[in-house]
Design a protein around this nucleic acid. Sequence first.
DNA 1: AATTCGGGGTA
DNA 2: TACCCAGAATT
Length: 355
Amino acid sequence: MTNNILQHFNIDQFQADLLHWYNVSKRDLPWRRERDPYKIWVSEIMLQQTKVDTVIPYFNRFMEKYPTVYELAKADQQEVLKAWEGLGYYSRARNLQNAVREVVSEYGGVVPSNRKELGGLKGVGPYTTGAILSIAYNQPEPAVDGNVMRVFSRLLKIEADIAMPRTKKLFEDYVRQVISTEDPSSFNQAIMDLGATICTPKSPTCSFCPVQEHCLAFSEGIQEELPIKTKAKKQKPIAYVALLIKNDQDEYVIEKRGENGLLANLWQFPMVPIEEIGMEHLETWVYSEYGIRIQLGEQKGKLKHVFSHIIWQLEIFEAYTLQAETDDERVIFIDKEAIGKYPFPVSHQKMMKYL
DNA sequence: AATTCGGGGTA
DNA sequence: TACCCAGAATT
């Protein structure tokens, strides 16, 4: 399989040191209080690219609302998105619910315990498959995420670029050789805890590390140089005029975004891609786009919102209309108090203070 | 292999 | 600012 990097690596002692540390020092997290595969699953989806501290309140609310696959399966998607509001990467929520519905209809409500069926579910990729199989079902499967690549790149002095997709397979091979077959659940979680609390991206606290004596990078003093990761490219800014359109009944215009792409199926205040349209054609564009005749008011503020790949530069304007309806099926007129029932991206939540 | 998907915390 | 985070789907 892999070469002989592990030749001088004491696997048994490493496992013992790591697991002992984990048993003494593991974090008390809501999804660690029991071993319900559904709860492990939800936690793993929420934790994708998201810090533990951010996830905890979302996870607790979600479990109160959807304690089993059956409640989530029968829920309305807009309600699920509302529960996900602010957490980001909203396709996770839509995929999770679709997958849960498949578990109910195809697997009798039981989360699959094999790689083929589990990994075939929407939103369940290689990492999440391994995480559920190991944590919930105690199978010796690798679950390679950013933590694991960082920890192992230092332990074994692996200098492959972790930004490259194929590099993850390399780490999966190493984990398969090093993982505890006695307690794979604790092993994988221990690596994650280690990466989150000690073997951190910057300034790792090697003096507290339970496996310091196993670490090749530490022995050479190069732990700060690893892992190697090529830079992501910068986000492109896009300018919009965002419109708080009010009618004489104090209702506001909000719009449901499309079912694919960025912030899919969330709601927002109408946005005009102002670079393409030009301020002088704004009212005309709004009428052709939404069938709403408006009069532009004054600017209320501006805000910058950074995504992974783009930056929204929003100029927020008031506007007025005499209408209370339109043919555009994306659009509704709604009063201020009812807006809170709809899922909005954070950028548009920030605009609500101007209502 | 590269890009698209959110949002917040950190140094 | 720049980087990172218990990544997956799409192109």
